[in-house]
Design a protein around this nucleic acid. Structure first.
Lengths: 239, 239
DNA sequence: CATTTGAGTGAACGCCGTTAACTATGGCAA
DNA sequence: TTGCCATAGTTAACGGCGTTCACTCAAATG
């Protein structure tokens, strides 16, 4: 696998130029503004040329979506690595970085976390390994929670409830990508990630506007209650 | 205000026929499948005729979105009224009805709760009463929580935290539409509604697929922990 | 009965994704 | 070096889209 040939270099350069154009259109005009003709126009090309690089507009958008997934994940990993070894500090830093990226890139957030358009990534690999970028993304949050649990188990719903909600193979997909995980950790991740997602999605999608002026303050408030739930069992252990 | 004229009857009939066509397209092909030409074709008309009823495609979609908001709200209100007088039972029934509607109408959910397309309802009434349907929607959930609080105050974050997150006028929009509300009730509503939204949106948008097989079981599990937090202060009152 | 209003049509403009047929060019083997 | 061929690009075209404009025609109105 020596140095890539001249042809290959030109090709990858064109691919990234196409993606950059697509993203620029996404940011300025929303997902509907991404058009092959506009991208080609900005590149000084004609639209059919893009078909040498992507089989369709939909495929281009799908690949862009995957790139955005990775961009966010890399940023979260970098944030985590800069946050020291304390799991709670890591989770806090990652959560804030997640919100910051999402608020700063609403169009991208909508593409990655919003309603999937009919044809999209649904059957990326023929139904088998669907949404694998999502799995790698989850790992970033699971790891510190698992770490925390190993140091000192935190409060969790009664085992009977957990069994009813997450037992009997219901966590199979997660186990396939992350190996065996205590059900309490899986629950803490799912519940926490859902709250994080809900908070950020509601802010980015302007679902808070009618109720609250400062979504960031609400976010910080929820971060506080979220991390409280990850502290070791309270003295009056109840449930 | 007598009986509407024949002209008016025909007009409203045509308007609803247009909206029905738009919704049919939304359900079968996603929001991008809504097109004036397709609607007109299904009605045996030509596309420009629709401009007698809606100033643009975007306006039609915006009005459809408002209708869906009302449809969901009416269903939740009916569910609430059928659920008896006990606030917790009401909240449970409404939450389940919210999820059922959303899972059963994913395209509609995406339109109402998903990423707003660039031009959409953003400035519906010139920035003043923005997203008023959202406000009326929130009321349905706030009412039982307020009822519950009046019967017996439930656990809430420390007052100092609540003040930092929701004090200093940050709840002004909510108060404008719902009058004075205890900050603890406002917090319980915002936190609960956010978790509900997060759970349902992640399920509808297929963000759970890589981790969990039975999203409904997870939903029920979270309903349990959610309502637990609305019970009266535990004996070992801590925070 | 004359007139005005409103609903609907057809043609056209400029976008769009996509396909097909074609051209030029750079890399590689004989 | 020469000849070939894969590759990247072109133009032209098809059908679909939102939207505008000029027009027709029936129905309500005075």
């Amino acid at each position: 696998m020596g140095a890539p040939s001249r042809r290959e270099r030109l090709r990858t350069a064109t691919v990234t130029e196409i993606k950059n154009g697509a993203r620029r259109l996404l940011v300025t005009g929303g997902v509907d503004a991404i058009s092959l003709r506009a991208i080609a126009r900005d590149m000084g090309m004609t639209a059919p040329a893009i078909y040498r690089y992507f089989p369709s507009l939909e495929a281009l958008v799908a690949e862009l979506t995957g790139d955005l997934y990775d961009e966010l994940r890399l940023r979260l990993e970098a944030t985590r690595d800069d946050a020291g070894a304390e799991p709670i500090a890591r989770l806090l830093a990652m959560s804030r970085a997640f919100r910051a990226w999402s608020v700063g890139h609403p169009a991208e957030f909508g593409l990655v976390f919003g309603a999937p358009v009919p044809g999209r990534t649904a059957f990326v690999d023929g139904c088998v390994t669907r949404d694998r970028p999502g799995a790698r993304f989850g790992a970033v949050f699971i790891e510190p929670i698992l770490d925390l649990w190993r140091r000192a188990p935190f409060r969790a719903p009664p085992a009977e409830l957990l069994r009813r909600g997450l037992g009997e193979g219901r966590l199979e997909p997660l186990r396939l990508s992350h190996g065996e995980i205590p059900v309490e950790v899986a629950y803490a991740f799912l519940a926490g990630w859902t709250r994080l997602y809900g908070l950020v999605a509601m802010e980015v999608f302007h679902q808070f506007d009618w109720a609250v002026t400062d979504a960031e303050a609400l976010f910080e408030l929820e971060l506080e209650t979220l991390t409280t739930q990850l502290l070791p069992e309270a003295p009056a252990a109840k449930g």
